[in-house]
Simulated scan of single mutants.
Amino acid sequence: MARRKKVYEGKAKILYEGPEPGTLVQYFKDDATAFNAEKTATIEGKGVLNNRLSEFFMNGLAQIGVPTHFIKRINMREQLIRSVEIIPLEIIVRNFAAGSLSTRLGLAEGTALPRPIVEFCFKDDGLGDPLVSEEHILAFGWATQQDLDDMIALSLRVNDFLSGVMLGVGIKLVDFKIEIGRIWENDFQRLVVADEISPDSCRLWDIETGQKLDKDVFRRDLGSLSDAYTEVARRLGVLPSNVTHTTKPTLIN
């Protein structure tokens, strides 16, 4: 597919005009960032893995009736997606204490939470994506009460799906973040899961050993990020079962 005009470039992806109105091409980069881009690196093959893993999760969500912006994977690094109006919020679902929740509440990492907790952050890199309450969201008009109810319901369905998939391959879903966008069909609005779902946006721990298989490997200098992501892909069947590590992953269609 011919590359078209660049629409947006973020820390991990680039969006290009799609071949048809209402579509975009999403390109996954090899760039890794942490601490609001204070720490950066290029991890060869990361974009290829995240493209394929996000395809796997988005297709799985579609099969259980959760709407997403994903249309199809085009090649190793690109996928065709619907153009959506992104709600300026990151939705975080937490099943176990980790990261900023542990810091804020003094909880030991890995503490099981009484129930999944949904949090919202305002999407603004310059502000460090600050945590906001539902009152902030309603007061500033980022979403309506109905939007909020629908976003929470969507996020919890995603959590149920991801938790089950990961449990089946010996991985604990500690937490994850997603973005949600609006698709307009005439005057009717529909909310869909957008952006990506990958080890970049999830905390994933091996159930038996506690080994981290997500971007915390990069954040905390715990080893090879490529090894960690490759292991997730291998367990999920995205890579052949005999692969232990590859900098240029060979993917299964």
Rank of each mutant, 00 (worst) to 15 (best):
V158H: 05
I117E: 12
E179I: 11
M151T: 07
E135P: 00
V193T: 11
K177P: 10
E196M: 07
I180H: 02
S100D: 12
S198F: 08
N186D: 14
E179S: 06
G141V: 02
D125P: 04
S155K: 10
P199N: 04
F96I: 00
D124H: 12
A98R: 03
A98H: 08
I180D: 01
V174K: 04
E109N: 09
L167Y: 11
P199H: 05
N186P: 00
T111D: 03
G126E: 13
L148F: 03
A108G: 09
T144Q: 09
F122H: 13
V169K: 00
P116W: 13
I117C: 03
L148K: 00
G170I: 07
W142E: 11
W142A: 08
S133G: 10
A153N: 12
I152M: 10
G141A: 06
G99N: 09
N186A: 13
G164L: 05
N159A: 06
P199E: 12
D124L: 05
I197Y: 03
R104G: 00
I171A: 02
S163W: 12
Q146H: 12
V165E: 14
E119D: 15
T144P: 09
F176Q: 04
K172P: 01
T103C: 03
W184G: 02
D129Q: 09
L148G: 02
L167M: 04
A98C: 13
W142I: 02
F96M: 00
L167V: 01
M166G: 01
E196S: 05
F176T: 03
G128F: 08
F140W: 13
D124T: 01
V193I: 15
S133C: 10
L113T: 03
T111C: 04
E134M: 12
W142M: 14
Q146V: 03
G141T: 08
V118D: 06
A98Q: 05
L154S: 00
Q189I: 10
F120A: 08
G170M: 08
A112V: 06
L131F: 13
L173M: 11
R190I: 02
A143F: 04
G128R: 07
D149G: 06
M166H: 12
